[in-house]
Design a protein around this nucleic acid. Structure first.
Lengths: 340, 340
DNA sequence: TTGTAGGCGTTATCAC
DNA sequence: GTGATAACGCCTACAA
């Protein structure tokens, strides 16, 4: 590899000590204007940029951000990565990815070890892993910076970005009732996920307010997978009469509903309206396209990145306090007015 | 953060010099058995592991692998990441992701700079960026280790993993002809991508061998996007008569074909067979499910990771030579025998 | 087989 | 405002 210029080169050429160069690099205020300009010029001429490793070794920082997740939704991950990276590149950080197994017993040690062995400066944690109190506690105990992305306000606002799924589902409920539907089926997510509970409650609560009750046998707990969506849709659609609407906790399962409806000869949206959640790639590809809820994932991820950097660099910003973003309803072809 | 034990602690406690500890850490052979065991015990007791930054600074290595891509297919990226990471975790590396804009003029500088500023030990490059001769040349000039994933054998075998798309498309052609189809439409990928050319040629070549000619107006150049698939499908299906089969260069575009067929009242697979490429998530979700070609992406990525590490650590392995993997045909609902 | 000494490129301490 | 000098934790000639 070509030898890159070092701080020593800069110091020698500009005729000052490297301590002073260091001051300029780090934007310290106590440097004479003339000195600063002279040094800056040399830096520019040389194309010098500080070596991350040396810098990290001395300051015990790595300029590395970690992304911890156990989420089957690749599209979601991809959007998060893009959001985080847009901030990283501005601020001189890099992103190290770390998928893990939420289920395994040693997953907390695994994550901690990940951070330790590479001196990761801070981690962003995605749902559903982000819902783990144990992980958050373990990180906090070890003074590891983290920011969680979640659907519930379960941490200090400096450590979390939450999407208001409850409010979004409330909107969806209102919309469906406005179409004249009163018989609604639900395929929820796994009940041990806060996100699933939030969505379910937000949905049912508003329905109730509007005078619509959801019978118990119309709520089925799914696993957020396509296969599970198929299974649950089947047990919902063999009921007689079948519901007028099915809301599925994510688009994957909603796609499963479409599949089963097609098999059973149930026309969507003529005889059955279907809604999902995520605005996954699938939502537009599927026929009919899905009415769903879109989270501003890229923006949330960027916000999370700003927060983690604020934590690392110990400064206050307005980002510290803003933490709540609201997803919005996207109406497509899979929902329609109730038949008379 | 808790203070981690250092090599000095290990040396002091085991009563040897840190040079000897260093030898044990790095698996040097010239250490007395007794000494080695004694030191190893201390290492285990302390839970010591060498600091990556210090190590990197001294040895000018970072134990970081980079992943360079500009690919809209999040699913593909996700699979690659998992494949690479499975090897990384075994070998003590971490993965740093770097999406970039293939189109922009400074993308090469951007990538080089990415590697330099974090002292990335080596990069894995995904298609279509991997097809860039300029990038490869730039990396080689600067002695940056790289491995490309591609559809064509366009580099030293130590630097590439290629999927034999040509052979796979040959299989597809044979399969379609065996169903009795002779009138075939094609939505190719952008012609400036090798992958698109390989697939197109592999397909047409075998068709010709089987006595099937594809008329020029039956081949349309798409852009690998869903929208482009819709557009191209339309101009193919308004021809009279329309083709019996449409092969699209990827599943995204094939999904577009299904959409248009649905709009135009063309039954798939009864009146039109459709095939894609990738075995994207879409392939199974869509109705009817797609006949397509699956690349063993995770395995390819793992192989690429092994190759890049071999390059970094300068050793020969059998991985150096194996570089070609063959995708295989997956037959689903979207293709069917030609009607009499 | 083992140890000594110096260096990797930066930041931090504490004088001046 | 500026500059020696010592860390930071590890690796690598070179010596013994």
């Amino acid at each position: 590899m070509d030898k890159r210029p070092t701080i020593n080169d800069v110091a020698r050429i500009s005729g000052v000590s490297k301590r002073t160069v260091s001051r300029v690099i780090n934007g310290a205020t106590n440097v004479g204007v003339a000195t600063r300009e002279k040094i800056q010029k040399v830096i520019d001429d040389l194309g010098f940029s500080p070596d991350k490793q040396a810098r990290g070794l001395a300051a015990s920082r790595s300029y590395l951000l970690g992304l911890i997740y156990d989420n089957p939704d690749a599209l979601y991950i991809d959007q998060v990565q893009r959001g985080v990276l847009s901030v990283c590149s501005e601020r001189g950080y890099e992103l190290v990815v770390h998928p893990c197994n939420y289920d395994t017993e040693n997953f907390i040690d695994n994550c901690v070890h990940f951070v330790k062995r590479s001196n990761i400066d801070g981690v962003i944690i995605l749902p559903p892993v982000s819902e783990s109190k144990k992980l958050a506690a373990a990180l906090r105990d070890r003074n590891i910076n983290y920011v969680r992305m979640a659907s519930v306000d379960l941490d200090d606002h400096a450590n979390i970005v939450v999407s208001d799924d409850r409010a979004a589902l409330s909107d969806l409920a209102r919309y469906l009732v406005s179409l004249g539907h009163r018989d609604i089926g639900i395929i929820s997510g796994p009940k041990h996920y806060y996100s699933a509970i939030e969505r379910l409650e937000g949905f049912c609560h508003t329905l109730k307010e509007l005078g619509v009750d959801v019978a118990e046998n119309r709520i089925i707990e799914g696993k957020n997978t396509y296969e599970s969506g198929i299974e649950c849709a089947r047990s919902l659609l063999i009921q007689s009469p079948p519901p007028q609407v099915i809301f599925a906790n994510n688009d994957e399962m909603a796609a499963g509903v479409l599949k089963v409806a097609h098999e059973m000869g149930v026309a969507v949206p003529e005889s059955l309206s279907v809604a999902g959640f995520d605005d996954n790639l699938l939502a537009t590809r599927v026929i009919p396209s899905l009415t769903t809820v879109q989270r501003p994932v890229v923006a949330m991820a960027a916000l999370a990145a700003k927060k983690i950097i604020a934590l690392i660099e110990h400064y206050q910003t307005e980002h510290q306090d803003t933490y709540l973003v609201k997803p919005h309803l996207i109406i497509r072809e899979s929902t329609r007015k109730a038949q008379k």
